[in-house]
Design a binder for these strands. Structure first.
Lengths: 252, 252
DNA sequence: AATGGGTGTTGCATATGTTGCAACGAACTT
DNA sequence: AAGTTCGTTGCAACATATGCAACACCCATT
């Protein structure tokens, strides 16, 4: 809606791919060098862009700080955190919390496994949306037309032989998840890693977040992991209740 | 330099403090509501701002993704990571990697402690600059006038009785660190937590990053932690060598 | 040494894009 | 049903961002 701001913001994803000099930025933006310079300067003043010694620009430090503050202000995260830690204490595995936002699912909290073999993931990292247990839970709660539209739009990378292969399979899986109220990812993302997850609901019953427990085969088999399901579901329900409680007196 | 972009970007730190509605944003920005609306819309299109159900705006998901991509593109981090993990394997404690940028020191990587008692920190979080071992290392490498200017500008919160109290003490500490080539934080941030750190240098000898090992008193005493110093310094030197190697053929 | 291409940078006139206004609509209170 | 409050839209006036051309600078080449 605002051309100038639009151009300035387009620089960010561009720099996310790697550092670039003024000429490159101007070219890829389709504007004159002097224009690009002024936009970059403004971004720089706000700390979103950093100028390294070789004069090239890259993303700046304030971005981290902003993302940091943002995540700490999420209500669900705050409420859920202690419960996630408690769950980790009991089972020892990696625990994740994720939300859905604008076509993306992303982790907003994580408690690391106590076992030496850990799975790779990071807060803020977009989730493998077609296979992750938390993604299935969050998408399963959308309306049927929404689910169809998104399922069609997605890519279906075959991380492993057990990855969700296409929209039809994904929609079917979402229906199952919706029905049973929990989800799994059995080697669909990484051959040797299994997850089980459960939804966290707001006062109106809608899914506001999803949590999961992940563990590699070498630590526990899929069957053993599934025995934790009741515990995971109870934890999710506890968080749901607490979250509903605090948000019931809906502030305006 | 660009008024429109400047205004738009000023919205981000504003929303970092918590969600706000259109009126609040317009007021705190000092512009008309319609103007604020258009800026917010542009930010929204780029995913930097999210509109929650109650119509209020808060920071959006893409911020995380951007910060994520940015951190993964840092050369030092990539080179250092495996060494940090190896160090953690050997000693079990929390390992941090930090850089200095525009008056701030921030963590860009972290390997969690294997012990149940962990210290709180998060990648992207600005470091307690007056006490942290990594901060001392990074600042100690600046020129003398730079150090003086920064030391004067900083706040000196007394986290504990052993926190650095004022600019003079800080400058003195930096001189020591600069001389000896390593740094400590013995209960200066959290009474019960000690850290030891070492610098990572580029080909020209300048400090490009700093790493540290942190452990709470309940796990190891400060003396025991100090026995790890040679190991930490060796690791930092290994990383320095590898980093210098890759950046020697200075790209233009 | 001097020249040439490659950067990033500045001042300026033009016109493009942004602004505030006022009026509308929707949702919620009284 | 009238009265708030909030978000939204179209429009005309103005301020602001734009591209240009010229400059400054650094490095490599001759």
């Amino acid at each position: 809606m605002s051309q100038t701001v639009d151009r300035a913001l387009s620089i960010l994803p561009l720099l996310a791919q790697g550092p670039a000099d003024l000429g490159q930025v101007a070219e890829r933006l389709g504007v004159h060098k002097s224009t690009a310079l002024r936009l970059l300067r403004t971004l720089h003043e706000h700390g979103l862009v950093y100028r390294q010694e070789d004069q090239r620009y890259r993303l700046g430090a304030r971005l981290f700080a902003l993302a940091q503050e943002a995540v700490e202000n999420l209500d669900v995260r705050e409420i859920a955190h202690s419960h996630l830690v408690a769950l980790n204490d009991r089972c020892g595995h990696t625990v994740h919390l994720a939300v859905y936002e604008e076509q993306e699912v992303l982790y907003i909290d994580k408690v690391e496994s106590r076992y030496p073999v850990r799975m790779y993931s990071r807060i803020g990292k977009p989730v493998a949306i077609t296979v992750a247990a938390v993604a299935k839970l969050l998408l399963a709660d959308l309306t049927e037309p929404e689910r169809r539209v998104i399922a069609e739009k997605l890519d279906y990378p075959m991380y492993t032989s057990r990855s969700t292969p296409n929209p039809a399979a994904f929609l079917k899986e979402l229906a199952v998840v919706r029905e049973q109220g929990w989800a799994t990812d059995l080697g669909g993302h990484e051959e040797s890693i299994n997850c089980i997850g459960a939804p966290i609901r707001g006062a109106d019953g809608r899914v506001v977040a999803a949590m999961s427990v992940s563990a590699p085969n070498v630590v526990v088999t899929a069957e053993e992991l599934l025995t934790l399901l009741p515990l995971v579901r109870r934890t999710a329900e506890t968080i749901s209740r607490e979250y509903s409680g605090t948000t019931q007196p809906k502030k305006v």
